[in-house]
């Protein structure tokens, strides 16, 4: 039987801006969850998930006048913070201009973490050991 789980059942997180870049911290609830996410949640997987949002400094929809959509290369770098079971993703140029220039409602990427936590994941066999209530926050 296939299990449908999202990232948010194994991890919590937070996102914010750095100019036109955003960072998303994904923090596992358990050591088991962190060990599994280190292999599963690669920078490539996160880049692919957010690919539609890497649109340079322009809008997320084609201009009505020109019909074109400016794109930019997706660049995501992952850092590890094993002491807090954290994976920190830096998503370059994802904010379509950032706090000062973006025309999006979420100019600062405040909601990106919740969006990533909605990602469907291929549940590992021992997923039950990774859920939050297995290890209450100490």
């Amino acid at each position: 039987m296939k299990l449908f789980l999202n990232l948010g059942s194994l991890a919590h997180g937070r996102s914010g801006d750095k100019g036109n870049h955003a960072n998303i911290a994904v923090i596992a609830y358990t050591q088991a969850g962190y060990d599994w996410l280190r292999g599963y949640l690669t920078a490539e997987r996160v880049a692919q998930y957010f690919a539609p949002m890497f649109v340079g400094h322009v809008s997320n929809v084609p201009s009505p006048q020109t019909g074109t959509l400016e794109t930019c290369p997706t660049k995501v770098v992952r850092y590890e913070a094993p002491n807090v079971w954290g994976l920190n993703f830096l998503l370059y140029d994802i904010l379509a201009g950032g706090a000062s220039r973006s025309l999006r409602i979420d100019t600062q990427g405040k909601t990106l973490a919740l969006t990533l936590l909605r990602m469907d994941i291929d549940a590992p066999p021992n997923f039950a050991d990774m859920l939050r209530d297995k290890e209450k926050p100490s």
Partner: peptide
């Protein structure tokens, strides 16, 4: 949880 979320907030290389 509240601490670790803020520890990594707006951080690049931790």
């Amino acid at each position: 949880e509240t601490l670790t979320e803020q520890l990594l907030y707006e951080v690049g290389d931790p």
